[in-house]
Design a protein around this nucleic acid. Structure first.
Lengths: 189, 189
DNA sequence: ATCGTATCTTTACGTTGACAAGAAAGCGAT
DNA sequence: ATCGCTTTCTTGTCAACGTAAAGATACGAT
């Protein structure tokens, strides 16, 4: 006799991560409860701990998944810095649970090799967009601060939007507002 | 006989806020424990709850204090957008506990009138720096996105630095790096 | 001196993360 | 088939946490 479950046997980790995303989108990563996740998945209270070691382990897995998703989204956006920047903000908006965890290293183990590798993949994808910029300034090392400025402006816009600090009319269409904001950084041709 | 205490009688709230700042700087706002604060202040575990109602109440007070400190720092920086921007980053670096709480509205009551007022004071101070920019573009409503772009780039740089996402050489002198980054936003005269 | 209030303590309850030990199911080797 | 090993999950337990209620103590105004 087969037991009816919400997940295929052996796929508890995936189900738990999905439940964690839903829970974080509801009430933030600080209020995440392992026992609540177990309840949602219909397993005992200690099942999550077995698969992820502890709470930080679960959030580490979520962060890795997030950096990989971000890398894929940025790569798919192409070479234009404007498109890549909008894709960054779009990722934060449409994957806010992942994004909120990714940049809160006190919640997980950010120094794991897997996390480091996934983060570097995302960073490389972001740099591709910056590299397509015309080298209008001849100063050495300028492209590095170019990248840092681009990263800062899209990351700042994304986190401000996530924290609800932006006025309501921007809340309505963050992607369009992001495009306008990023344009301020790119010199007119 | 007078009892030796770490704080003047009646100043427990201040002592608790100071202890909270120290605790958050050590291990982040998520790991903050009211009972730990009480231990540090030498009072019973329920004393913090009396003064702040609950944990969110304490963090609300901390956020209000933070927005006021930020407003003061930005005002003191003057009218130049570059200076104001660097002051924003400098505030995040030198008051990281306040800053981390301020932009995490799921941890406190961000819709309180006091919080709202303090946040608007800080916003007004930031806008002063943007208003000093030359109106080089004649498009209507441009100054609003100017402000948003400026806020985004300094906020993004600050949060990236706080989350440890920036390379080590930038960690060493974030203020200088911030100045370089902000310059990317300001058109050369 | 007394009353009222603010300040803190004591006690208690439900929830949480973590740990340890055990049950149960899959699985390859024999 | 069945033995032994591993993975998966359950059960039981513990200390720590946030919160609430009620009692104790001190302060200040009258």
């Amino acid at each position: 006799m087969t037991v009816t479950r919400a997940y295929h046997h052996g796929d508890l980790p995936r189900a738990l991560l999905a439940a964690a995303v839903a829970a974080i989108e509801e009430s933030g990563p600080a209020a995440l409860s392992l026992r609540d996740l177990a309840r949602r998945a219909g397993v005992s209270h200690a099942a999550p701990t077995h698969h992820f070691g502890d709470k930080a382990g679960l959030l580490t897995a979520l962060a890795v998944e997030g950096f990989d998703l971000l890398a894929a989204a940025l790569t798919a956006a192409g070479d234009d810095l404007l498109d890549v920047g909008v894709a960054y903000v779009d990722f934060a908006v449409s994957h806010r649970a992942h994004f909120e965890v990714m940049f809160r290293p006190d919640l997980y183990r950010a120094d794991t090799p897997e996390v480091r590798a996934a983060r570097e993949r995302a960073g490389a994808a972001l740099h591709l967009g910056v590299a397509a910029l015309p080298p209008h300034r001849a100063e050495p090392g300028e492209s590095r601060t170019d990248a840092l400025a681009a990263w800062s402006i899209v990351h700042g816009f994304a986190t401000l939007w996530l924290s609800g600090a932006l006025p309501p009319d921007i809340d309505a269409d963050p992607r369009a507002a992001a495009r306008t904001v990023i344009r301020h950084l790119i010199p007119p041709p």
